[in-house]
Design a protein around this nucleic acid. Structure first.
Lengths: 194, 194
DNA sequence: GTCTATATGTGGATAGAC
DNA sequence: GTCTATCCACATATAGAC
């Protein structure tokens, strides 16, 4: 079980994440990936059926992990507000931890064809629905403002999602500080109440 | 001055907006555009120097219009809070009115090279700075919560920006209703205070 | 201002040797 | 599992006729 260097299949995937993120899926060629991996482009096809399978693998795994993170973070958490807080925390942490993959997930869906696209969209919808359901419950319980749950959920999710675009692990704000700011804004707004 | 049909240069641009939005810049070829315009691909080059110039024209004009809309909406508006409310309204209206163009602007920056890229980034920075400055003022005046202005401004802008991704002009929510929800969330948060 | 024809490069992908 | 060699389609872009 000596696993010093990651095997080539994983190495190719890592490089693809880096390059799809940097240049975009369509602007990044199989040659580009092969070059970085130190192999010939034809060798890529030993590990992956085609370019789309490479993209699909990235998106699928990312969505799987995201959904799993969410589920785990909600185990034994009771109460609508506490659950929403946990969701926000998890969503932000995930998007700051896996910036490149979530950026690819959010921008390269168009690179997938029929079945693969459907599969990833279903995963994304599952995730979004969990968020909407919490908002809906909160509204029903009179905890949250009574506005269209879809719009409210969307506003919250997308606001947090964008952290992937600017968060800098070497910046002067910790993830905890950022989570604090977002949670505060989401629940209380930006108006200072002293 | 008979301008019944838009001239071909404008027609090409409109088609490019539609296709860059649908398929992405790199996945959309000059042939695709020419086909829709009912001309040969070589004819595109009579109107535009190259493909990048076409993209640049879209991004530049969009950013120009966005900046201009913002400036106009702030004329004679006094007070930090009123100015921020006006900015939010303008940003949302613009992103719901010009969905395709702003989506392209947010996703295809990588298609630009050096000078064009710098130029568009400068416009975007100008815009972002205006938002940050308002937040900064509000914090200084004790109106807004005292958190990192960059993060707060970013959270607000990006939340509103995403409206371009889901807003449906034929949906059951008017732009005014959406503006109301967002403004409410930004200032008061989602917690219901009865 | 649009056409036909073409140059030139590069893309994704496959065949078959080692 | 990686290589060399190659196929074929399509990309951007140009030249020059009408």
């Amino acid at each position: 079980m000596k696993e010093i260097a990651p095997d080539m299949k994983q190495k190719i995937k890592s490089i693809a994440i880096q390059l799809f993120y940097q240049k975009g899926y369509h602007a990044c060629s199989i040659s580009n990936i092969a070059e970085r991996a130190g192999i010939q482009k034809s060798s890529i096809y030993y590990h992956y059926l085609n370019k789309e399978e490479l993209l699909y693998g990235i998106l699928k795994d990312t969505m799987d992990d995201l959904n799993q993170s969410l589920d785990e973070s909600l185990v034994n958490v009771k109460g609508t507000e506490a659950r929403l807080i946990a969701m926000i925390r998890t969503h932000l942490n995930f998007h700051m931890d896996r910036q490149k993959e979530v950026i690819i997930s959010d921008s390269e869906l168009r690179g997938l064809t029929s079945d693969n696209l459907r599969s990833v969209l279903r995963m994304r919808d599952d995730y979004d629905r969990k968020m909407r359901d919490i908002i809906r419950e909160g509204i029903a319980e009179g905890l949250f403002i009574n506005r269209d749950p879809r719009v409210v959920a969307n506003a919250i999710i997308t606001m947090c999602t964008q952290s992937s675009l600017w968060y800098n692990p070497r910046g002067n704000l910790s993830k905890e500080e950022i989570i604090d700011i977002y949670t505060k804004i989401i629940f209380e707004g930006i108006r200072d109440r002293k």
